[in-house]
Design a binder for these strands. Structure first.
Lengths: 158, 158
DNA sequence: GCCAGATAGTTTCATATGAAACTATCGTCG
DNA sequence: CGACGATAGTTTCATATGAAACTATCTGGC
């Protein structure tokens, strides 16, 4: 158990076993390793890649919908979309019903990137998971899910 | 199993079950929630807090040693230490043997912060873990450990 | 129809960050 | 001793990021 100690002892905080720290280090190492694989080859930032990933699955989303599905804020999405539009990987067309909304879709160029990067990402994910048994993989999913729900109790981002 | 699919099907990448993405979102949510608890109250950034945490356990480290224990690079450490020194939470004294090295130690003020924030951080960690059974906690540690080792195979940060 | 919020998205501005260049000191090989 | 490469740490510079202000459009009550 992390940071365990006998009653009455001084609280000991050891970063090596402190979950938030371990998670942060692991997550950064994973993201960096994967981003390294596509960032130079396709000149894609992480936000840009995420947007391509959701649009690859669900075309015609608004910026707000993209933000909701990628855990990015609207500023990040706006900037990444601007960049994707100027590199002709995404098109922005005004929504027919509501002029405030623009509908985002991959161009052929954007789709080609999606078709190439998605399998690459999946390969890297399975390489990462290859050190785990099938049970461990299942447990991992459920642990992440439980922690994700619990974290909202630590103080909502109001 | 994440992103599972039948043989021959198109590779499907779904962010919601894509481990690197899930990890990143979880880790950010956890870090943000915890940082929120101490950042305003103590005017501490995450890098600053990490440095206080390691110096609280191991006084007299060099900047390089701090970097090694906190997964930060030397630039980040240098900047955070400068800030901690100017707010009189850490002292920098030249190493007796090697003039390139400075030894870092918490001041009384720095120690007071450590004594207050460490238990707070540990409380938040146990709140987070309270949704998991003892076995799950053990498994979690070992999964993080395994993934951490495996990630180095995804391409070393040269 | 028209005004008072609400909502979608962009821009601005101040700060954070990282890579690379730089400074100072050290160790060592001749 | 005296270069020369390695090491500790800092600074510079260019870019990334987030909060808050802003623009444009929409919706609901009157």
């Amino acid at each position: 158990m992390p940071n365990d100690r006998a009653v009455g002892e001084k609280p000991r905080l050891n970063l090596d076993t402190f979950l938030p720290y371990r998670l942060s280090v692991l997550s950064n190492r994973v993201s960096d390793a994967i981003a390294r694989q596509y960032s130079e080859r396709f000149d894609l930032s992480i936000p840009e890649w995420r947007i391509i990933a959701v649009l690859g699955q669900s075309p015609n989303l608004s910026a707000r919908e993209v933000a909701g599905r990628t855990a990015m804020d609207k500023v990040q999405v706006s900037r990444a979309v601007t960049s994707l539009v100027s590199s002709r990987r995404v098109t922005r067309t005004e929504d027919a019903e509501d002029a405030r909304i623009s509908r985002l879709t991959l161009t052929a160029k954007g789709r080609a990137i999606y078709e190439e990067v998605a399998p690459l990402a999946l390969r890297l994910e399975s390489l990462l998971l290859s050190s785990l048994s099938p049970q461990e993989r299942t447990v991992l999913q459920s642990l992440i899910y439980k922690l994700d729900r619990q974290v909202s109790l630590l103080g909502a981002p109001e």
